[in-house]
Design a protein around this nucleic acid. Structure first.
Lengths: 203, 203
DNA sequence: ACCATTTGTTATCTTTTGTTAACGTTTTGG
DNA sequence: CCAAAACGTTAACAAAAGATAACAAATGGT
């Protein structure tokens, strides 16, 4: 775990601008709470059964979230550069995670550990903006999840895949299809059939 | 829309205690931003196509969230007394809601309209605690949604229903079955079959 | 360049779910 | 109190998805 380079700091600062803008004095204190870690392909950022003590921000690379159910590997989500990465529930509650988070490409991830997060929430200089930042980020992901649940309830697997074709460029281009299948809530074999069906219908 | 009774204020204050504790001076200002509205059975709290300008807290009663897809009514969620009620995404973004929220029982709901919310977020006396309150509430619902998405991806409809039998007392006892079916991501007919299957297996 | 692993497709068969309609019961509202 | 609406179950059929296995294609590591 290293300190951040100036380029990494600039990237991070720009990306979080819609959520929080620190003045120079705040920024200097804020970045003292950050580290960066590098993950090799297939290396784990979070493991099921262990507490996730980090909130991550992906500078480069990508991760997938997955559960092991009856010995089967079920992918639930993906995150890419400039997105958050964490087993959110475990980080927030301090309880062991029920899922794995794994780098799928060599990845550089900014880490805030829970102690530093608590320190910032208790530091009068930062507390207000960190609370606000946290609120806006939580609200952002809440809305994403809301959409995703709505899709599961109102759409067929085929419709969800067609939607992904329009909006999921990173996922489609950078993730293997059997991971995408579980992400859509179906089996890899079933996704393959859906793809064929679409191909035939549109030709 | 009326002012709140003392009993309603007490109920609200007690319920939000895990999230935020106001001192007396703050509380007096805070409650000036609240109203209470009463909804008859089947009356709408939010309508698709219209902006949801309220964040609600259900004092009594219950609501269901639903979408109209190709003319079909698809229930996505329920909320009961002492829970929040809002078309969250619409409230946060100010864009028209895509779903309806409807009282299923006669309901009393505390309302914070967006103007009052903004006023509190800009009032130095309240801003910090409101930001924190908002963060904790958003995080709470974020974790709920995370679990729900995980259930859609890792469990069969039958498994989701069995889980609901353990944890969804209010839903099972107070909501009609065809609403519950869509909530689980299946049709009412299918839920009826699953129930029969479970009955036969366990007898 | 080679071999092992991973990934994607296809086929077969079984199970589950969706769709539609009918039927009886319960609930609701005037 | 009664007629209408809502609700839950069941049946019959069609469509979709799961499980498994075989095989082909792509990928990766050495």
């Amino acid at each position: 775990m290293d300190a951040l380079t100036q380029a990494q700091l600039n990237q991070f600062r720009e990306q979080i601008m819609p959520y929080v803008v620190f003045n120079e004095a705040e920024w200097i204190v804020f970045i003292q709470h950050l580290k960066v870690a590098h993950y090799k392909k297939k290396q784990h950022f979070v493991e099921a059964g262990k507490v996730c003590n980090y909130l991550g921000f992906i500078l480069s690379g990508s991760v997938r979230y997955y559960n092991i159910i009856d010995g089967n590997d079920i992918t639930g989500y993906f995150s890419f550069e400039n997105e958050m990465a964490s087993s959110y529930k475990s980080f927030l509650t301090g309880e062991p995670a029920i899922n794995y988070v794994q780098a799928l490409e060599p990845s550089a991830i900014i880490l805030v550990d829970r102690k530093n997060m608590d320190a910032m929430l208790n530091n009068p200089m930062l507390a207000y903006k960190i609370e606000r930042f946290g609120r806006l980020v939580a609200e952002h992901y809440l809305m994403c999840y809301e959409d995703r649940v709505t899709a599961f309830i109102t759409q067929t697997p085929e419709e969800r895949y067609l939607k992904l074709l329009q909006t999921g460029k990173d996922i489609l281009q950078r993730m293997p299809q059997h991971y995408i299948a579980h992400f859509l809530g179906i089996t890899p074999v079933s996704l393959s059939r859906i793809r064929k069906r679409i191909l035939v219908e549109h030709k």
